[in-house]
Design a protein around this nucleic acid. Structure first.
Lengths: 229, 229
DNA sequence: CCGCCGTAGATTGTCAACAATCTACTGTCT
DNA sequence: AGACAGTAGATTGTTGACAATCTACGGCGG
């Protein structure tokens, strides 16, 4: 479940809350625009408001939630503009990640990739959308892990659950994707293990472009971010 | 002082603490590896430990400080490796920022750039290093502001004070830089206002490469991150 | 009937105290 | 003398309570 080389230097209650909220926003259980009440979260998770506040502050720094003074935290609403932002940022950082990964891929990384590809391949087309998303993200986790770049990984985790949300909604709306997932990622693996940094950049760029074109087909709120009652 | 279009949707004590610590790390007043005691900070800033904890959690999410369970927060030590990380990440995001900026630069942005360039030019070579850093960063702030990309700006603010620290140390060690600052940034302005996205990418890439080669001359801790007593 | 103002409830921002854990020092044993 | 265990102090993690602020509802006036 934990990406790979992620250590746990700080296992505090606040981190636990962060993790829970990240997962719930990724799966869509916490919908964009939803009001996150501190006391509510605290009792639901069996902790006090202190750690919850810390967690919300962290999530705000990552852009996952929006905090308004004396009004509370709201799950960030994802507009068409956000799709574009997340995509362009992801393309920028993931090309760098790929470039670095080609010279740093260990046998363990390759094995992990193959394991994930195997799972992508064997699962029939009618796989649960959530599982397809999990595999997709896991594959890219390996790339970032191989890149061995702490700040790059931080950026990735900051957009990761938003990417997850996009992929999830798309998989639900266009159930044909899981069949496309395998060949695309398999090609990525081939290029990455090839050792050509420039080729890796191009491959990721292409992968991102394809991913974006599919994402654009989604119907998302277009304009401003006022969805709350 | 505030970059440009930065609004203040949340002016809480925690944000105040974050801002103070950012500044103090940028100027080097808070040295890498230093132990940040919550109670100490709280009394020094005239607030309680609650906001301080929130602030430290935010700064940890941005990688500015490192928190160890039951041991506290330490200002992240910047090794040669960190110089490389910050540089590569900055290059990746700033090329994107420049690409977007060329089609979004408003007259106000250009005026702001010119104002900064003017200041860079008129100040004689023996300007205070701190002022030179301020101008340098301010110039790039304008680029990110023109890029109009919330997530991109977040990444920038997360590495901004580390960049500031690097620039500061370099200006102190190599006092000739302030004379190079003007022409380099002037060229950037010219290309950005030209309207060619690809040219803007290349220009920023070149600017970054030059910046990195100068940064590498610094003597920084090379290996692991244990500098504390 | 519609709009404005005031109040009550709810929610967040902040604080001070308690509990858990770590670090450093001291004393003892080999 | 050197090394190890035990203890005291300091520091962080967490909690519950208090104060400031916002939202929603109801009454009043036009």
């Amino acid at each position: 479940m934990i990406p790979l080389g992620a250590s746990a230097p700080r296992a505090t209650l606040a981190d636990y809350v962060v993790q829970v909220i990240r997962e719930k926003t990724a799966t869509g259980e916490l919908r964009p625009g939803e009001h996150l009440r501190e006391a509510e979260l605290a009792t639901a998770l069996g902790v006090s408001r202190g750690p919850v506040r810390e967690a919300l502050a962290i999530l705000e720094a990552e852009g996952q939630v929006e905090i308004r003074r004396h009004r509370g935290a709201f799950v960030s609403v994802l507009t068409q503009r956000d799709v574009e932002e997340v995509h362009s940022l992801r393309a920028a950082v993931e090309t760098l990640a790929a470039e670095r990964a080609v010279t740093r891929l260990s046998p363990a990384h390759l094995a992990e990739m193959d394991r994930i590809l195997q799972a992508m391949k064997v699962t029939p087309g009618s796989v649960e959308p959530q599982e397809a998303v999990r595999l997709d993200l896991a594959f890219h986790d390996v790339i970032y892990d191989a890149a061995d770049h702490a700040r790059l990984r931080r950026v990735w985790t900051s957009i990761r659950s938003q990417v997850a949300f996009f992929l999830h909604t798309r998989n639900v709306n266009f159930p044909d994707f899981p069949t496309v997932g395998f060949p695309e990622h398999h090609e990525l693996r081939t290029v990455l293990s090839g050792g050509d940094a420039q080729a890796a950049r191009s491959a990721v760029e292409k992968h991102m472009t394809g991913s974006y074109s599919r994402l654009r087909q989604l119907q998302l709120p277009a304009g401003s971010e006022d969805d709350r009652p």
